[in-house]
Design a protein around this nucleic acid. Structure first.
Lengths: 202, 202
DNA sequence: GCTCCTATGTTGACATTGTTCACATGAGAT
DNA sequence: ATCTCATGTGAACAATGTCAACATAGGAGC
């Protein structure tokens, strides 16, 4: 009652608060009512902006995807792909960024790629994480750093690997220390012999 | 009241019913009360056998893991690893079994590897899916079918890949048709050149 | 500047859920 | 036959998602 939200900012405020709550408790334990209470707003006001609790959570999941994409974009920006070393650094850096996101933002990661936020199939004109991976692989291919004959469907393979490793990290099935082993193993699989640097990534 | 469960079978009955419910509605939408109601039992009776709703769900998740393991065991039993072709078939077959489980039992897969059932780190004497993968890789190595130098940490890599692909399938991020592309890509990465068979697996 | 409409927030209510506590009861050991 | 403990019951509580009827503020149109 102190502040009233008759200025259209409630939707954003709820997403922000939900995002904060998801970060600390995980999506399973956030409650519409407590969000409303924190914002000093009636529980039912949410239904003017979101069809559903899940609808709100989907908005939070979209924030998660955006955060991941931003991390990956930063990696690309840091390494202009104008030489082989940078191309390798891009590739490994993208992987590390993905895994770091999973480790740092476990709950957000789980929501973003969980059952609530159905990830739609990647559209051709996508500019998100998947597209960034594809361009990194194209760069590697252009510099002839990939083992011969493996380029086709490599996007799917690398995406699945990295996403799977992230999931295993998040579930605690694998300790964070094994990230290096994973990245090394990946490098051994895809890079031509002799092109392995001692410390992949950064 | 018709049948009373004073014979100790309630725990199993609840797990069975919960398993059935998870299969159709997904773990997020199963309710202790409705399970009790189906079994014609009081809601609170569950607490004589399970600490918690999550405790019951963890039992269901264990069933899921067992079902997955059984599928993989069937693959190993079907291909005695006494020749190179069989060793390759084992490897690809295990991958296909994992992915088939994810596709057939989406909800159970999500529960088994979801936040509720924290997957503990793999113990050294494990005999489950991870161990089966390791032995399949050892077989490939013994027959010298792997590209040189990639064996170390390959378990982690292959596990992550397959698990990640399964997750992508379950989330709908990738259509079931791409399983073949995934398996082929995997084969291109790990098998020595010339050892690729036209139809990996079966 | 007045009026009306629509977007937005409130009140109160309902059904459902997980969980607990005090109590009943039945089967097996003594 | 009695005692005891494991197991199931009944009633209750707090919390949650959701909805329908209602209030109101602030801008659009005159």
């Amino acid at each position: 009652m102190s502040r009233n939200y008759h200025h259209g900012a409630l939707a954003e405020a709820m997403v922000d608060q939900a995002l904060a709550d998801v970060r600390v408790q995980g999506a399973e334990h956030v409650s519409l009512r407590s969000i409303a209470q924190t914002l000093e707003v009636s529980p039912s006001s949410a239904y003017n902006h979101f069809a559903d609790k899940d609808d709100l959570l989907r908005a939070v999941g979209a924030c998660g995807l955006a955060a991941l994409d931003e991390r990956m974009a930063r990696v690309l920006a840091a390494h202009p792909a104008d030489n082989p070393d940078a191309a390798r650094a891009r590739f490994s850096g993208l992987g590390r960024a993905y895994l770091a996101f999973a480790i740092d933002e476990t709950h957000l990661f789980q929501l973003t790629f969980g059952p609530i936020c159905a990830v739609q199939e990647i559209p051709p004109e996508d500019t998100g994480p998947y597209n960034k991976l594809t361009t990194a692989l194209d760069d590697l291919d252009r510099w002839q750093l990939l083992k011969p004959g493996i380029r086709s469907d490599l996007d799917l393979m690398v995406w699945a690997s990295t996403h799977g490793m992230a999931t295993l990290l998040v579930e605690g099935a694998v300790p964070p220390e094994s990230v290096d082993a994973f990245i090394d193993s990946m490098a051994r699989l895809v890079f031509i012999e002799g092109a392995l640097s001692a410390a992949e990534g950064r």
